[in-house]
């Protein structure tokens, strides 16, 4: 489902000053897997996620997502790729002037889905995330955990094959985080591949899923049923 082959990405900070974000990274994620990408800030997690949505292109190496080679993907085809990917942000990124229902429906509206489908699919997803009774509320009326569940609903409403979550519990307290993780787990069980960047040790340790650890742009560990740190 996701394949990185010897991927290197550097950022230029000045004329002779390059920062290596990812160095020779090779990773293979199968369909239906749940993968944590862990590592301290600046280890390359964010770059890893941005490469998968083709917000950025690597300097070197090849990336395949949902069967598409991102290097040769034509720019006008990028939206098609992104329809296969749901994206959950650390800061939710909900539109404040829209209701919960409208925020979720927005993701279908703007890719031109017919109204009939929107009216059928949005209530289903709101039910899945347990927010049916909040459909007409605005984001500021919700708790952080509820907002993140709306964000997950929006990412999943289009039935994407891949769900990318960038620190989805970063702004939540531990007990709320558990609720969001249960939701992600449920979505994973429907067959979606989930990749979650995090540095939340408790969550990684309690889920016991595959862990890819990055440090200064290198993959230093790739372990199935892993924990956050060595021996942790």
């Amino acid at each position: 489902m996701i394949k990185l082959q010897n991927v290197t990405k550097t950022y230029k900070r000045g004329a002779d000053d390059e920062v290596i974000a990812l160095a020779d990274v090779t990773v293979d994620v199968a369909k239906g897997e749940f993968v944590f990408v862990v590592g301290p800030s600046g280890s390359g997690k964010s770059t890893f996620m941005k490469l998968l949505t083709r917000e950025q292109l690597p300097d070197d190496g090849e990336i395949y997502v949902a069967g598409k080679n991102l290097a040769t993907l034509r720019p006008w085809k990028v939206p098609v790729l992104r329809r296969e990917i749901g994206y959950v942000f650390q800061d939710f990124k909900l539109l404040a002037n829209k209701t919960v229902y409208e925020n979720v429906a927005f993701a279908l509206e703007v890719i031109g889905r017919p109204r009939r489908e929107i009216e059928k699919r949005v209530p289903e997803v709101l039910d899945l995330v347990g927010l049916t009774d909040k459909a007409n509320a605005h984001p500021h009326e919700l708790s952080g955990g509820q907002q993140q569940r709306v964000s997950v609903a929006r990412a999943f409403v289009n039935n994407p094959r891949i769900l990318l979550c960038d620190e989805p519990t970063g702004n939540l307290d531990p007990s709320t985080s558990v609720g969001v993780m249960k939701l992600l787990d449920r979505i994973n069980r429907t067959g979606a591949t989930v990749v979650m960047a995090t540095h939340d040790q408790h969550i990684v340790d309690s889920m016991r899923r595959r862990v890819i650890e990055l440090e200064s742009g290198h993959v230093v560990r790739d372990q199935s049923r892993g924990v956050y740190g060595y021996g942790g």
Binding site: P79, R82, R83, Y87, K93, L95, A155, N158
Partner: peptide, 17 residues
């Protein structure tokens, strides 16, 4: 920009944005 950023990530086509 917040709205268009979301549109980009959910796969809205360029002309739609």
């Amino acid at each position: 920009r917040e709205q268009t950023g979301i549109m980009r990530l959910v796969g809205a086509s360029n002309w739609y944005i």
